[in-house]
Simulated scan of single mutants.
Amino acid sequence: MAEPSSLEQVLIRELRRWRELRGLTAQQLADRTQGQLSRQAISKIENASRRVTLDEFACLAVALDVPPLALLVPLDGSQVAVTPGLSVSAMDLVVWFEGKSQPGQPLPTVGFIRAAAPLRNYGLISETLTQATAQERSAYRSQAGGDESAAEEAFRMRDVKVQAAALLIETLIDVGVQPPAVARRWVDQMIATGWLERPEYVPVIEPTDDEGEDDGGSDQED
């Protein structure tokens, strides 16, 4: 069995692999970093003669058009050494980064669960409001087609999703975590229904004149 790779070794391999998959030369990738990394720097990284800062890591993920995890997770079935005495599979690495499990523990510790909960709630809030938007669009399509019963059900499901998002936001506030920014229309609905008790803690995304709100525009169809 092959020796486990360090995260740094995985990053070096995946950086080169994704660059080649994108059909980019080192110079073309450097150009995509908008001056943060030169061709020489990228070549040195791929040759393991230069380390990568966190800022550069994020920049490379953007330049390669990949999720950051794609540069840290080996897709060749190899193990990753996260400590000198602990190696994990690619899947274990992903769920650890997502806060869903803890390497080397049959069950996550209380401290891990408490630290992971706000991170998971951030993602759930975005996902839930995206689902609310989809339900609302479905309701408008049903109205346009004359199916009021289906429209009513879709609006009901939209409200269920918005209420769930409000509960998640309140949970973050309870533990002193800044909630993510939410579209004005959803915040207004949460306030009007009483689902959001502390709106002063929620950053609001205001609609612009020339575009609808993310997770907020009704996108009503003619």
Rank of each mutant, 00 (worst) to 15 (best):
M1Y: 08
A2F: 11
S6P: 05
S6T: 15
L7Q: 08
Q9E: 14
V10N: 06
R17M: 06
W18F: 15
R19H: 09
E20Q: 10
L21I: 03
G23K: 06
L24Q: 11
L29W: 13
A30G: 15
Q36L: 15
S38L: 12
Q40N: 15
I42C: 08
N47I: 07
A48F: 12
V52N: 05
V62Y: 11
V62R: 08
V62C: 01
A63R: 10
D65L: 04
V66L: 14
P74T: 09
V82M: 09
V82W: 08
T83A: 12
P84Q: 02
G85Q: 10
L86R: 00
S87P: 03
S87G: 05
L93P: 02
V94Q: 03
W96A: 12
E98M: 13
E98T: 02
P106Y: 06
V110P: 00
I113V: 14
E127Y: 10
T128V: 09
L129V: 09
T130A: 07
T130V: 05
Q135E: 14
A144R: 15
G145A: 13
G145V: 00
G146T: 05
A154L: 03
V160S: 09
K161Y: 12
A166V: 02
I169P: 03
L172E: 08
G176A: 01
A181D: 00
W186I: 01
W186E: 00
M190Y: 02
T193A: 07
P199I: 01
E200F: 05
Y201K: 08
E206M: 03
E206F: 00
P207Q: 08
P207E: 05
T208F: 02
D210Q: 11
S218G: 11
D219S: 15
E221C: 15
